[in-house]
Simulated scan of single mutants.
Amino acid sequence: MINKKIKDFVKNKNKQKIIFTAGPGSLTKENIMGLAPCFGRGDNLYKKTENKVLSKLKKISGHKNIVSMQGSGSLALEIVALNFLFGKVLIVSTGYYSDRLFDLSLKAKKTNKYIKYIKKINWQSINKIKEKFDWVWACPTETSRGLKLPIKDLKKLAKKARAKLALDATASFGLENNHNLSDVTSFSSCKGLFGLTGASFICYNNQPKNKINLFYLDLNSHKNKKMTGPYHAIQSLEFILKDYNKFKKSVVMNKKKITKKFKNFLVYEKKNQPLLCTYLSCKIKPKLSKVILYKPRINLSGSVICHLGEAHLKGKSKGKIIDYLDIDD
């Protein structure tokens, strides 16, 4: 009875909006089923859930260590910049979110002085790099432009520059492969993981050596759980991760349908097509007022359409919501 009430509640909420945004996606019953009263200390039931979720996330990332924190993916990025980056840093320029990496690197350079030099290089020019760096930092999926850079290509760049690789995997984690090739990767709970908003994560192999004279931005503060963690966001992931591939299938289906329907307007070749979203050279308009389109943080001549709107349907998704999109002549 309770499970049916949750299903009915979720179904009603998803009928009220049809979303083509980058995350969170549509509401799922699995998001709600895991929610319960909890506390970060002395609550063995919550600890069991947390261990299960973090273990699965480590398995997806392929890293030895994971730290969770309450906050957006941008919080995790700022912690990466301050705690991990040092020496010469190369930012792969792809759009709005890579510009954020550049800005965070500049701020970290002023704050703790471990970073000595920062350079940006356009993603289309990475094969031309000849300098040596200590770190390469990049977005495998740049949502603002619906662009994918294969992580294998980014790893090849890092090897050429004799650098470690850090990834802003906010829009790629779970959906794309090879995050294990990075030295550090950060992401959030509400995009390709289909969870509720509120949690961010950093996965890594080797402990950072930078000493941080701050509290909230020190990785160790979160690692040692010195503040309230993202308890409910983590709970919302428990049943999602148990059946993760079925949720991912909904994204794959929507990607296939939109690339077929708007095949004449695709901006990038297949190699640079992310699962999360698609950049079209045409302007898209909704057929219904309840359709919510993604609004990039930069001005584009076309449209970026995201594919999390049928997550609640899992493997039964047919991409039918794409029928609510039309070209704005």
Score class of each variant (00 low, 15 high):
residue 276 L to H: 06
residue 182 S to T: 09
residue 250 S to L: 05
residue 292 I to K: 15
residue 245 N to G: 00
residue 20 F to I: 09
residue 295 K to S: 13
residue 187 F to E: 06
residue 308 L to Q: 02
residue 187 F to W: 09
residue 313 L to Y: 11
residue 297 R to G: 14
residue 225 K to Y: 08
residue 135 W to K: 04
residue 148 K to I: 06
residue 249 K to Y: 08
residue 313 L to D: 02
residue 124 Q to N: 13
residue 309 G to R: 03
residue 224 N to P: 00
residue 261 K to I: 15
residue 173 F to T: 07
residue 175 L to S: 04
residue 287 K to I: 14
residue 127 N to R: 10
residue 121 I to C: 04
residue 293 L to F: 11
residue 305 I to P: 01
residue 305 I to M: 06
residue 302 G to T: 12
residue 285 K to Q: 12
residue 176 E to W: 09
residue 4 K to N: 14
residue 204 Y to C: 03
residue 86 F to E: 15
residue 66 I to F: 04
residue 155 K to Y: 14
residue 291 V to D: 05
residue 308 L to I: 08
residue 199 A to S: 12
residue 26 S to V: 09
residue 165 L to R: 03
residue 241 L to M: 10
residue 231 Y to W: 13
residue 145 R to C: 10
residue 61 S to F: 07
residue 134 D to S: 10
residue 136 V to Y: 09
residue 217 L to P: 00
residue 268 Y to W: 15
residue 267 V to E: 11
residue 235 Q to F: 05
residue 3 N to P: 00
residue 164 K to Q: 11
residue 258 I to L: 07
residue 261 K to T: 14
residue 298 I to K: 05
residue 281 S to P: 03
residue 171 A to K: 06
residue 234 I to L: 15
residue 64 K to V: 09
residue 235 Q to G: 01
residue 64 K to W: 03
residue 251 V to N: 02
residue 20 F to L: 06
residue 105 S to H: 06
residue 30 E to Q: 13
residue 88 K to Y: 12
residue 172 S to L: 07
residue 225 K to D: 04
residue 155 K to A: 10
residue 208 P to D: 11
residue 89 V to E: 07
residue 94 T to L: 04
residue 327 I to N: 05
residue 183 D to L: 05
residue 159 K to E: 15
residue 190 C to I: 03
residue 206 N to M: 06
residue 315 G to K: 13
residue 190 C to L: 02
residue 119 K to N: 11
residue 103 D to A: 14
residue 94 T to G: 07
residue 222 H to W: 15
residue 13 K to N: 09
residue 114 Y to T: 14
residue 57 L to S: 05
residue 54 L to G: 02
residue 321 I to Q: 08
residue 204 Y to A: 02
residue 321 I to K: 04
residue 167 L to V: 10
residue 95 G to L: 10
residue 300 L to I: 15
residue 85 L to M: 14
residue 239 F to H: 14
residue 47 K to D: 13
residue 61 S to T: 12
residue 140 P to V: 11
residue 28 T to N: 06
residue 9 F to G: 01
residue 78 E to R: 14
residue 104 L to C: 02
residue 67 V to F: 07
residue 33 M to E: 15
residue 282 C to N: 12
residue 118 I to M: 07
residue 279 Y to A: 07
residue 219 L to K: 03
residue 236 S to F: 10
residue 29 K to V: 13
residue 131 E to M: 05
residue 317 S to L: 07
residue 240 I to C: 01
residue 115 I to C: 05
residue 93 S to L: 13
residue 293 L to C: 08
residue 123 W to P: 01
residue 1 M to E: 12
residue 161 A to I: 11
residue 62 G to M: 10
residue 258 I to D: 01
residue 163 A to S: 12
residue 260 K to R: 12
residue 240 I to N: 01
residue 50 E to P: 00
residue 244 Y to T: 07
residue 225 K to T: 10
residue 164 K to R: 15
residue 196 L to P: 00
residue 307 H to E: 05
residue 226 K to L: 15
residue 265 F to M: 00
residue 5 K to M: 13
residue 64 K to Q: 13
residue 18 I to N: 02
residue 207 Q to C: 00
residue 320 K to A: 03
residue 249 K to P: 00
residue 216 Y to G: 00
residue 275 L to V: 02
residue 209 K to R: 13
residue 148 K to S: 07
residue 149 L to F: 08
